[in-house]
Design a protein around this nucleic acid. Structure first.
Lengths: 191, 191
DNA sequence: TGTAGCATGTAAGCCGTTACATGATTGA
DNA sequence: TCAATCATGTAACGGCTTACATGCTACA
């Protein structure tokens, strides 16, 4: 029934931060959405922007990129009806379930079939990723102003996100400890 | 290149806990995988099981469900080559990135466009879901034996998962606090 | 002069979900 | 006897990614 998918809503959210080209929107997504949602592929973004234009929630305007004016940039902007739709969605539409998909967990389930060192490596890989993401997110967080009208909400999300990643690091460290313990007990009392 | 998708690997993991019908496998997934991975649709499961059979990683055997033997059940079991594949995958294949997709976060980003009470409701909805998932996961966790050869690894995952959900609850409570603060500051110093 | 970044798309294809279809078995 | 559960699939479709295709612009 609801004509709009997640990516379309994500695009509207990104556009609520100001007009932008598809390319810029993708960069915004990479800088923000990717930490707690998803950064859609460019092709998908363009497709959804087209649909949003057709439906009148968004308008596009061509802007010259140089005096010669050969190639142009399509700049997208929310329309009044787009803002209305965004408001309705934000407040009223039922919240879909959070998706958490940990490939590390799936591997660990069959840890007994593989070398313990391999499992430790997987945990280390995951930990390094989380650490990198946390650092990236913090650099976004730090430029956000909690008292700003719109960015205050972005700050709340960044605050939550940074805690999420910090907690994840602690979880992985505890996991590592449990893994070591499991292996130690196995080898001391084999079979 | 790698011929097998996530669902196929998930099926192999589930089968490593013992032979089962497609229906039983789905129940296993609902009871375990859903907390930190995904519980695939039945139709997808059957499709992947067919593919795994074709490739010889899994065999199926027909078992009568009653004396009359009208309808039969397909019982799937890992083959030696299936176990080999599972081992290789568990230890050697690169770990895909964790997926975390929070629709709540996406809503919060445009919190300034909606009523604050609506946002609080979304947080409450999410919190209730996490609480329920945590309770469900704990009931699985409690029957797991950390000293068991195979189930020890499942215990580790459940232990991690339960901490993940507990941390999430604390995060949502902190988020709620930040939200209240934001709203309070807005109304005391409007515009 | 050339390469990295800006910019916009099309095409193909997989993955996974929902909806649909069917029927046996078990227990209230 | 009726509903819930067990059990196995097919069909249609949407969503998203990857790969491909193209060309401008700025800068080193």
């Amino acid at each position: 029934m609801s004509q709009w998918n997640h990516t379309a809503h994500a695009a509207l959210v990104l556009l609520s931060m100001g007009e932008a080209s598809g390319y810029e929107l993708k960069q915004r997504a990479d800088a923000t959405l990717r930490f707690f949602f998803n950064s859609p592929a460019m092709s998908q973004l363009y497709a959804e922007l087209d649909r949003l234009c057709d439906a009148g929630l968004v308008t596009d305007r061509l802007e010259a990129r140089s005096e010669s004016g050969e190639r142009e940039t399509r700049v997208f902007r929310l329309t009044a009806s787009g803002v209305r739709r965004l408001k309705e969605w934000a407040g009223d539409e039922p919240l879909p379930a959070t998706v958490f998909k940990s490939h590390l967990a799936l591997r660990l389930l069959v840890g007994h079939l593989a070398d313990a060192d391999h499992m430790r490596e997987h945990v280390a890989t995951e930990r390094a990723r989380v650490e990198r993401d946390l650092a990236d997110l913090m650099s976004v967080h730090d430029v956000l102003d909690p008292t700003h009208d719109q960015l205050g909400w972005a700050w709340i999300v960044a605050e939550w996100g940074s805690r999420y990643y910090r907690d994840m690091l602690a979880q992985l460290d505890a996991l590592r400890g449990n893994l070591d313990e499991l292996v130690a007990n196995r080898s001391s009392a084999p079979r």
